[in-house]
Amino acid sequence: MSELLRINDLHVAFPTDDGLVRAVDGVSLTVSQGETVAIVGESGSGKTVTSLSVMGLHKKGTAEISGSISVAHDGGFLDVITASEEEIRSMRGRSVAMIFQDPMSALHPYYKIGDQLAEAYLVHNPGKKKEAAARAVEMLDLVGISEPAQRAKEFPHQFSGGMRQRVMIAMALMNSPKMLIADEPTTALDVTVQAQILTLLASLQKEFNMGILLITHDLGVVAQVSEKVNVMYAGRIVEQGGVDDIFYNPMQPYTLGLLKSVPRISATGSERLKAIPGQPPSLISLPAGCAFAPRCEYIKFADSNACATQMPALVGTSAGHTSRCHIDESKRQASFAEAMKEVR
């Protein structure tokens, strides 16, 4: 499987009047052909900022970016951070396309659906209007919109939320990208429609062997569609691994806390939820050590001084499964295994 995206030690910070907001703090991950890699985290954890960086969508001057983002483009790799605006524009939509969360605001209300789709094609194939219009209809058909030729002449307000998200997917596929970034693609949708869209994405991925970077806060969606998972907290990846590693053998207290606090439709009914106490830190004044330390209930198993002063490195125990935590491995295993029994 060839790699499509390599993010290495990405830092993104935004200077504000109140201080520097460290939105992304040393993120590294890769996405290969045919696989779905999820970034999961709560609001403000830096997942969307990461995805916008890949698309080169941060305005120069408003964000301080360092590290490298290599995107497979035209047979080679393009470093989005150092590339010129022109190079990025030729990559955007053609090598990597993006689906946004809110299909209501991502479509222009005054233009016909077909024309908006065609525009995405014309950017990379100037002048080929007929081809673009035909491709628009073809893509609408592909994403399951009935009577595509007719629907292409309609406006966004004539489409339901789920249909609009299908249009967004069709638009992303106009230039047959090798990779798709889906930023909360189903968050604005109802569960029954969400199930339709997730099924559609999975079948398109299979058909075109695309790599998908899925940004979401929903652990259920992650469990359903992804192979690899990155858990983010306060701008950092705190745990990285295969989907089974993360859900059945978490190594980081925050991941474990998330798994324990998410309500499940369960056999036992309504037992009390195990909430994580406290709230995420401000990105302006992050704790010097582990950002999760003030909320961590396992801090008793670690050298609390280390937790407060040193950021733990992302280290692994097994192949491809890494986490940031100071807790002594032997103590962790026993207590986490006990806690995982309560989950489910």
Binding site: L198, Y248, R264
Partner: peptide
């Protein structure tokens, strides 16, 4: 249908 559509945080059964 509603119940079956809710994704659960359990990859193996999902």
């Amino acid at each position: 249908a509603l119940l079956s559509a809710v994704p659960q945080p359990d990859p193996r059964s999902e």
